[in-house]
Simulated assay, not measured.
Amino acid sequence: MFTRPAVCSPARRRVARQDGPVLVCCGLLTLDVVQVVDRLPGPDEKVVARSLAATFGGPAANAAATAAALGVPSRLVSAVGEGPLADAVRADVAAAGVELVDALAPARRPGARPAVSTVLVTAGTGERAVVSTNATALGGLLDDDVDVGALLGPLGPRDVLLLDGHLPGVALPAARRAREAGCTVVLDGGSWKPDSAETMALCDAVVVSADLRVPGADGDVLAAVAALGPRYVARTHGPGPVEVLHDGRRSSVPVPVPSRVVDTLGAGDVVHGAFAAALAQGASYAAALERAVVVASRSVEHAGARGWAADGA
């Protein structure tokens, strides 16, 4: 039976940070400019938005905030940069209870700015359209001699590393360092990237989207990913059941039906954050995924990827 994990207060998070396991999320942090519209505009057409919000986003960032809201101390390693936009992003991440570590050294990378995403959410359906500078904003910004150990901080066997594949030059050495420390390594496989195969080989668990395709493999995505090394592979399908392949055994996990759909933005990120957070709390893979789909289903009932936590749902 599905149960709703409790939302944790900031004060409780500070206490937990001293003693409990830590989730380290390594990947993309963006400034999201979100506008709610009645419908998407056509070519050469303008529409008036119902509302406007500017906040942080990105798979790793949303996952870290999800874990923090669930009571698991989280550290986000990402590329932030400097300037007013970077300052606003830092303040917003701190307000979510997430420790932020900037992988960019301003002295060596002057003028670097955070990635920006423009998001249009359609009222009534919660569907979203996204335009982002993700890849171009991060490409070439990280040095080959980045001290990954210093970025990650101290790690132990109870900690979890979650990668989203969006931080070139850091993800692979981070996964290696985590494996050496005995951590559980998890990958958010939203899309196939040049180093995905090498990264997956270092992972214990990989949760991919329905859109992911493995180059050169047939239609069995679960088997193709599992063949690369991870013992636990799951594939989400939006509101549909999650496919699972665990140590050669197949199963599925149903997703609870939300009472309403307000906004699907970041629901996949919530799945990954809640899954990794549950693993850090000692849950099995199966129990962690069941918890994660409950939280994700709850998240679409609220605006934004973190509205469910802010509303105390």
Score class of each variant (00 low, 15 high):
1 M>L: 13
6 A>L: 15
11 A>D: 02
11 A>V: 05
19 D>Y: 12
20 G>T: 03
20 G>A: 14
27 G>E: 06
34 V>C: 02
49 A>V: 01
52 L>C: 12
53 A>S: 14
54 A>E: 15
66 T>Y: 02
66 T>E: 05
69 A>P: 03
77 V>T: 12
87 D>C: 10
87 D>Q: 12
96 A>F: 00
96 A>V: 03
97 G>A: 09
116 V>S: 14
123 A>C: 08
127 E>I: 07
129 A>P: 03
142 L>V: 13
142 L>Q: 09
148 V>I: 09
148 V>P: 04
152 L>P: 06
154 P>C: 08
157 P>I: 07
174 A>M: 00
178 A>K: 05
183 C>Y: 02
191 S>E: 07
191 S>C: 10
192 W>A: 09
195 D>F: 14
196 S>D: 05
216 G>N: 11
224 A>K: 05
224 A>R: 05
225 V>D: 01
234 A>R: 07
234 A>F: 11
238 G>Q: 05
239 P>C: 05
242 V>I: 06
245 L>P: 00
250 R>W: 02
251 S>L: 11
253 V>W: 14
263 D>K: 07
270 V>S: 09
275 F>G: 09
276 A>K: 01
277 A>T: 06
290 E>P: 02
291 R>W: 05
291 R>G: 13
297 S>T: 01
298 R>S: 15
302 H>E: 13
305 A>C: 06
308 W>K: 00
